[in-house]
Design a protein around this nucleic acid. Structure first.
Length: 550
RNA sequence: GCUCCCAUCGUUCAGCGGCCUAGGACUCCGCCCUUUCAAGGCGGCAACGCGGGUUCGAAUCCCGUUGGGAGUACCA
């Protein structure tokens, strides 16, 4: 073991003792059973939808029990940091209503909430462990480490830094001193307790009792001394931060299960009360015949920006996610499901595939419950960032927008489910606005041509329709106009008749009405035509028919 | 390789020893409604990976096997 003086010389002289931090961050005064949770995003990329999933659970549990929900930025790997990640986090959290009770922006008594700003705290505890001989200095180079791993693999031994492979574990203090004098960089490793064959046991809040081999690896706890700031590895930061922030429930992805044995040893060595763990099954993605974790790099839908850019309502996404976590919530109506508690013991243990088709369905259902005014407000907000032209049009003609949205929505028992996300507004309702409408160019327009009606007939229908056009209030009467024109030009009365004898007619009433629909909306799909003409007004209707008459 | 975790329709959630000839939702396919596309209504296809136990009785418990996932970093 190293002399205390040698150890202390490695740290700032004014570095506080553990008691200092213990007093600065006392136990929280919270009601019995209050859960303190934390979400720890790492700024090595965008927030993952799986992060939203976990953060939702963190927030729900804390709120529900009168506890606290923290967001702590886990930026101990400065080399992998991505520009703009923090801003992206904030966008994501804001969009999904997941703002923390305590974080860097909002502050809190247990900060800083960014690991890179907690260097001194970590150093205190590293020194503490060093002084007790529970940690040691390791000068092994990258090459030496690689060689060790290689030899272990060759002999089919477990890889790692342990036992006789741990070349600096029981090094002669004189050798250590010599390295130090030579200015060699070192890391600090945790001295794994020597309990070969022991089992590590713990109870996961989701999975129940779990066990594994006790850890015997001397994991790195403090990264290389040639870097500044000197930061800890995840394992050590987890122990120190969650203890000092008085977190009592750690919810994280199940890729951490295998690290629990190390974490237990670390908590124990540090003299910390153990925390409860809840390991969540990660969101998956179908690839070929198998599943794999949703990947930030390969899957666009892994990023929260995907949902924000497309304009999925946050409530719909949250509802979907909660349903994945607790099946019970998926059976409830959205509003109720959002208000009901998430229960850890009901969380699934196998990773669910994210199903965008299902999300679409949920979102369409949800938007169908909204009023035209609410939809307009949401679309305007979305368009401000993602479709400025649409935003401008909406601002200029809010009344028209409202009239458009009212079609088959206001006063209807089953509103039309044609909007899954805000970006659908333009393709579905854009035609209402003259500035966004892609008018037909004439009888040869390919959308019209696709109907298979002779161009002369199209022209004739359009001419006759326009010539006698009346802007009627009654939908039935209004449609009679199409019927009359269709009959006059020999269209079949219904699709069946036409199908029976296609050569006898230029088309059926179906084709006749589609001619008008395409002229009016530019598409074969649209809300009720009569309602559309009401919203558009007589002049606009006629001007949209007009190109077909030439 | 080693160590963990997991396993019900295509997807998702339910089922926690008999109520299961396995249920709901999404998808898909029919049919109805209808001037189109939708929406809506009705109906249908479709699963307990496999093999052993335990038990009067197993999707449910145990063991094995297969398959999938994760970890095995000075990444988190």
């Amino acid at each position: 073991m190293l002399d205390r003086a040698v150890i202390d010389a490695l740290f700032p002289a004014d570095l506080p003792e553990p008691e200092h931090w213990e007093q600065q961050y006392p136990a929280r005064e919270l009601p019995e059973g209050a859960l303190v949770t934390r979400f720890g995003p790492s700024p090595t990329g965008f927030v993952h939808i799986g992060g939203i999933y976990v953060a939702t659970i963190d927030q729900d549990l804390a709120r529900r029990t009168g506890g606290r929900y923290l967001v702590r930025v886990e930026d101990t790997d400065q080399s992998r940091e991505v520009e703009g990640a923090l801003e992206q986090f904030e966008r994501g959290f804001t969009y999904f209503h997941l703002a923390a009770d305590e974080d860097t922006g909002r502050g809190g008594a247990y900060g800083p909430y960014q690991q890179s700003a907690r260097e001194r705290i970590y150093l205190t505890y590293v020194r503490h462990l060093l002084r007790q001989g529970k940690a040691y200095l390791d000068f092994a180079t990258k090459e030496e480490l690689a060689a060790i791993t290689q030899r272990q693999q060759a002999t089919k031994l477990p890889t790692g830094y342990y036992g006789s492979w741990a070349i600096w574990r029981d090094a002669d203090p004189a050798d250590v001193q010599a390295k130090l004098d030579a200015g060699a960089p070192y890391v600090v490793r945790f001295r794994a307790p020597d309990d070969t064959g022991a089992r590590a046991r713990f109870t996961d809040a989701i999975r129940g009792p779990l066990e594994a081999e006790a850890n015997r690896n001397d994991v790195v706890i403090l990264k290389s001394s040639d870097q500044s700031p000197r930061l800890p590895t995840y394992h050590f930061a987890h122990a120190v931060d969650d203890h000092l922030m008085r977190v009592n429930l750690v919810i994280r992805g199940d890729e951490w299960i295998s690290s629990v044995p190390v974490h237990q040893q670390l908590f124990d060595a540090l003299g910390f009360e153990p925390v409860t763990y809840a390991h969540i099954a990660p969101l998956m993605k179908q690839e070929g015949g198998s599943k794999r974790k949703l990947s930030k790099r390969k899957d666009p839908e892994a990023s929260v920006d995907f949902y924000i850019e497309a304009g999925y309502p946050a409530e719909a996404v949250l509802y979907y996610l909660r349903g994945l976590a607790n099946g019970r919530l998926a059976e409830l109506p959205l509003e109720q499901a959002l208000a009901e508690p998430i229960r850890l013991e009901e969380c699934g243990v196998a990773g669910p595939l994210v199903d965008l088709v299902k999300l679409d369905d949920i979102a369409a259902d949800h938007i169908a419950t909204l009023s035209g005014a609410d939809i307009l407000a949401a679309v305007r907000t979305w368009a401000e960032r993602f479709d400025p032209e649409l935003r401008g049009v909406l601002d200029d003609e809010p009344e028209l927008a409202l009239r458009a949205l009212a079609v088959e929505r206001d006063g209807v028992e089953n509103p039309r489910k044609d909007l899954k996300k805000w970006s659908d507004f333009r393709p579905v309702y854009g035609f209402f606005f003259p500035r966004l409408h892609a008018a037909v160019t004439g009888p040869d327009d390919e959308r019209i041509a696709a109907l298979g009606v002779d161009r002369e007939v199209v022209q004739a229908v359009a001419r006759d329709f326009a010539a006698d056009y009346r802007q009627l209030d009654d939908g039935q009467e209004w449609f009679e106009q199409i019927r009359e024109v269709a009959a006059k030009h020999g269209f079949a009365r219904n699709a069946k008749e036409f199908k029976k004898n296609p050569d006898a007619y230029p088309g059926s009433i179906r084709e006749a009405s589609q001619i008008i629909r395409i002229a009016l909306t530019g598409s074969t799909r649209s809300p009720d035509m009569h309602a559309i003409t009401q919203a558009l007004g007589r002049d606009e209707v006629l001007s949209r028919i007009e190109p077909l008459t030439k």
